[in-house]
Computed example of a mutant assay.
Amino acid sequence: MPFIELDSLEKVFTVRRRAGLLRREKREVRAVDGITFGVERGEMVGYIGPNGAGKSTTIKMLTGILTPSGGRLRVAGIDPARERTRLARRIGVVFGQRTTLWWDLPLRDSYRLVHRMYQVPDARFRENLDRCVELLELRDLLDVPVRQLSLGQRMRGDIAAALLHDPDVLYLDEPTIGLDVVSKTRVRSFLRELNAERGTTVLLTTHDLTDIEQLCSRVMVIDHGRLMYDGDLTGLHEAGDGERLLVVDLATAVPPIEDVPGARFVRAEGPRQWLAFPATASAAPLVSAVAAAYPLVDLSVREPDIETVIAKMYGGTREERRESLT
């Protein structure tokens, strides 16, 4: 059996809204609509989609926070809604915009509370804490109150807290939101090592395709509560005809760069130009060609937006896609 198993999983919310001065009308919203998939132990899977697609609702059902309206759900053979306390010892959760740390306590004291809550053996707790502190570079932050930490520092602190009790599976909901480049790189490196060394199963939701590209061998796309793609990232780009952007900063303004094979000129603003190229292609040949022919100062590569990829895969706007699913 898969380590995580969903079979026709549904979550329906009842929403009431004003329909007149004294009248309210009731309607149902299907946040998750018949999703079926399995995740094997040790997999790192990206679970992506536009805002409101049902990603966080799925995570909350996987953790036992929400009870499914229909279908079947098991994590490590456990029904999360029925055995939430038992499951809590097997999972770790990081919600990017909500902290599990104690706001007014130093980071060290938050970890001590986690130690007692999960009843982690002392030797194992010290080993896990030392490892997280080293790999996430938290040593100088242990005596700092959580409220004084930057977003990137707090996020690293939250990830450490989620791992102190040796969970079998780690759910990450937007773990790199708002982080700078250095913090993102540090978090991604840590997660790769965690998965390689301990075989921790990771389910990652994010809007940053670079997170998926660097961490996950498999990606699932959810839109309006339905699973619309399950495969590798290359297949997703091929299905969606995705393009990345090469943003080029030159020493001076020049005519549009239209002579680089494999690239399409998009626009220019003074010395900065945007070139599009297939998301499945390497940027290295384009960079070499631009650097050889133009006065290059700086450049960056921008990944395609999730909304854009999904729109190209299935056509139309979000509203048109919703109508096609009903």
Rank of each mutant, 00 (worst) to 15 (best):
T200S: 13
E40R: 15
A276K: 00
G54N: 06
T205K: 07
R72G: 01
L236T: 03
D7F: 10
R244L: 06
V32Y: 01
P167L: 02
A276C: 10
R90V: 08
Y118I: 12
K55G: 05
V94Y: 11
G199P: 13
L172Y: 06
A123T: 10
I78S: 11
R226K: 14
E5G: 07
K60A: 08
A253D: 09
P145H: 10
A311E: 13
E83W: 08
G316D: 11
S8I: 09
T14A: 05
R318F: 14
L246F: 08
A292G: 00
M220T: 00
R116N: 13
A161Y: 03
L209C: 14
A281F: 09
V93P: 15
I310S: 00
N195R: 02
L203D: 09
V120K: 15
E83Q: 14
R226E: 05
C132D: 03
L73S: 08
V15E: 06
R86I: 05
G157T: 11
G157D: 13
L203S: 05
K26G: 01
R302N: 04
Y171Q: 00
L66M: 01
R90F: 09
D211P: 06
L215T: 14
G240L: 01
A251D: 13
E5L: 11
F37S: 10
D158I: 05
H165K: 04
L296E: 00
R131M: 04
A311H: 12
A196P: 14
D33G: 07
R198M: 07
P285C: 02
R116A: 13
F190Y: 15
P261R: 08
Q273V: 03
E25A: 00
A81Q: 12
L101V: 01
R318L: 12
R72W: 06
R41V: 09
L138A: 13
L136C: 08
G96K: 03
L9V: 09
I59S: 02
S150W: 04
D140S: 15
R321Y: 11
M313W: 12
S324I: 09
R30F: 05
T206P: 10
K26L: 04
A161L: 05
L101I: 11
T201W: 12
R18F: 00
S69V: 03
L233T: 11
E193N: 13
D298N: 05
A283W: 02
P80R: 03
L286H: 03
G235E: 03
Y111L: 07
W274Y: 06
D208V: 12
D143A: 10
G54T: 04
P167I: 00
I222Y: 04
I222T: 00
C132A: 04
D33K: 13
V12P: 12
L163E: 12
P278M: 07
G235Y: 07
G71N: 09
T210N: 06
Q148R: 15
G225R: 10
Q273F: 04
S288Q: 07
A293R: 06
V146Q: 09
L135F: 06
R126P: 03
L299D: 03
V144Q: 15
L172C: 09
R116H: 14
R27A: 01
G235M: 08
W102S: 01
P2A: 07
